[in-house]
Amino acid sequence: MNQVIEIKNLSKWFDDFQVLKDINLNVKKGEKIVICGPSGSGKSTLIRCVNRLEVHQEGSVRVNGIELTDNVEVIESTRKVVGMVFQHFNLFPHLTILENLTLAPMWAKKLNKNEALEIANKYLDIVQIADQAHKYPGQLSGGQKQRVAIARSLCLKPEIMLFDEPTSALDPEMVKEVLDVMTKLAEEGMTMICVTHEMGFAKQVADRMVFMDEGKIVEESSPEEFFNNPKSERTKKFLNQILH
């Protein structure tokens, strides 16, 4: 049993509207899952249930064997091991890049300033943005912002990373620099769930593909099978639309 994420019979409603319908998904340590599917199919909601940004009504979500409930301590300690990268970066605009990175280590992990700075500088180097450390987010390009956002999550040394369409708010020429960082992270053995429509990235990195439609997992298979031999009609149609 080395499942780090176990999602069982998960259902979620926004008022009367059922967004997630009986989802089952397990993720092993070091596995990379790519989730795709049409807009509004519930992909974001699903991964947001993993760090409890969304609260589910039925079923269970376990991270490292611990079930997510309303218990604030469980939620906060889960969030320290589950990093999340958003479509719109959500950097803190009033703080410098360096302060964006040191904030959580200092306040959530109670590291002292020098330890936090050491970690921050290390990850700024890794995402190749060290020269911008004292600028503000507003002074950076989209690609740079997203790399900072990834570095910010990594500063907490998470075991799992969630990506919610990290490249879809970017200009095309900046997509690659972000995907390169993600690929490097994958190669280093990070457990990852990525919601993305970058199929090149998926083919290269994914251990498993998950296709969602209307709140359900429609297809779950290896990338070879998913791209060459999709089973369901809806998957075929979707792949046709985004690959051509």
């Binding site: 940004l53 969030r79 990093g83 719109h88 803190f92 306040w107 959530a108």
Partner: peptide
């Protein structure tokens, strides 16, 4: 998104509010 980013980094509600 600022609330979400802060809480996904493990900050509690008071920290998110004040920082």
């Amino acid at each position: 998104g600022q609330w979400e980013a802060a809480s996904s980094l493990g900050l509690n509600k008071n920290q998110t509010l004040s920082l």
